[in-house]
């Protein structure tokens, strides 16, 4: 087991190294000048040159990459070209917001996807099966930014049920930052008002970001459950006269949990990085909107930082899922 984990961690480091190399190569393949991007349209040539020297952009590509990797080994992701801030500090600031939004989206995806998937499986082949699947698909089948703008237009502007963009109301100042998660910080500050405000602000972006995953989860729950339901021991249990609902809850769902775990892992991993557009529309100060702003201004050290953190999150979540999978299912051995 320990050897397995070590092997996986080593592979993860290799994959992350590949991610940095790919990100570095791509960002240098872009036909644009990061100095001009950072200093703006009216900047004079001398300023640009000075900027290049200060940020080491005048060196050759291998040297730049070497410098970058050397710093990275000490945990330093470098300096943003656009803001001249430490990227490590930037990511520390922006990551919790994305984590909070992602957790919210996962909650919504589970709340919607799991019941609909179970319903569809139990009603397999009947009208409700189809209806449940179509309903689950609706949210994730349109461009996410359109859905987000529409949701704000309807639920915030017209109906007034839910707050607008951002993590908090403009009139309530944020609590002191401890975890960076607004809800946790509100609890730490013993501020129920901010807690409720923060939760309310999570609903629309969480639903919009979770919509696509909800459809996925519905489908996977349905097929996992169908597979289990058709297996002999369930049939036996049913034949023995166990009541339908108990069979489902006791046996089927327990066994269907394994494939669902896999889905959950990749879902969580892709959500973290998929928040780019949702965060942009909802003015959510997370790594998704940070990635967009950085990418648009060709701030490639920042983009590489985000990429690396997203890659790390993705790999870690998948490792945890695999480990959980193996500890649930004795038939799987670590190899």
């Amino acid at each position: 087991m320990l050897i397995y984990i070590l092997r996986r961690l080593a592979l993860m480091v290799f994959v992350l190294w590949g991610v940095t190399l790919a990100a570095f190569l791509i960002s240098h393949a872009l036909p644009a000048d990061p100095a001009a991007a950072a200093l703006g349209n009216n900047a004079r040539e001398a300023q640009l040159q000075e900027f290049r020297v200060r940020n080491g952009l005048d060196k050759s590509l291998p040297v730049q990459y070497g410098v970058y990797m050397g710093r990275l080994l000490t945990g330093d992701l470098g300096t943003s070209l656009r803001t001249q801030n430490s990227i490590t500090a930037d990511l520390k600031q922006f990551f919790p917001a994305t984590l909070e939004l992602t957790l919210g989206a996962v909650v919504f995806a589970v709340l919607i996807g799991l019941p609909l998937g179970i319903l569809a499986a139990l009603q397999h082949g009947k009208a409700l099966d189809l209806l449940a699947r179509i309903f689950a698909l609706l949210g994730g089948a349109t461009p996410v930014y359109w859905l987000a703008i529409l949701a704000l237009n309807v639920f915030h502007e017209r109906l007034g049920w839910l707050p607008g963009p951002g993590r908090l109301d403009a009139y309530s100042l944020a609590p002191p930052v401890h975890s960076g998660l607004m809800t946790v910080d509100a609890v730490l500050a013993r501020d129920p008002q901010v807690l409720v405000d923060g939760l309310r602000h999570l609903i629309l972006p969480g639903l919009v970001l979770g919509a696509f995953s909800a459809a996925l989860l519905t489908r996977m729950t349905r097929s996992a459950l169908l597979e289990v339901l058709s297996q002999d021991y369930i049939r036996t249990a049913r034949a023995k006269g166990l009541k339908g609902s108990r069979v489902i809850w006791r046996h089927a769902l327990k066994n269907a949990a394994l494939p669902l775990l896999t889905v959950f892992g990749s879902l969580f991993g892709s959500l973290l990085t998929g928040a780019v557009l949702t965060e942009t529309i909802f003015s959510w100060p997370g790594i998704g909107s940070y990635a967009t702003t950085s990418a648009i201004s060709l701030d490639f050290p920042a983009v590489m930082g985000v990429t690396l953190v997203a890659g790390l999150a993705y790999s870690l979540v998948n490792l945890i899922v695999d480990l959980a999978y193996a500890s649930f299912d004795p038939r799987i051995s670590f190899s």
């Binding site: 930014y145 703008i149 704000l152 237009n153 963009p165 951002g166 403009a170 100060p285």
Partner: peptide, 14 residues
């Protein structure tokens, strides 16, 4: 207070 709202449509709603 300056609130970041990138999209014009979102500013209209707000």
């Amino acid at each position: 207070i300056l609130r970041y709202m990138l999209e014009s449509a979102v500013q209209q709603s707000a």
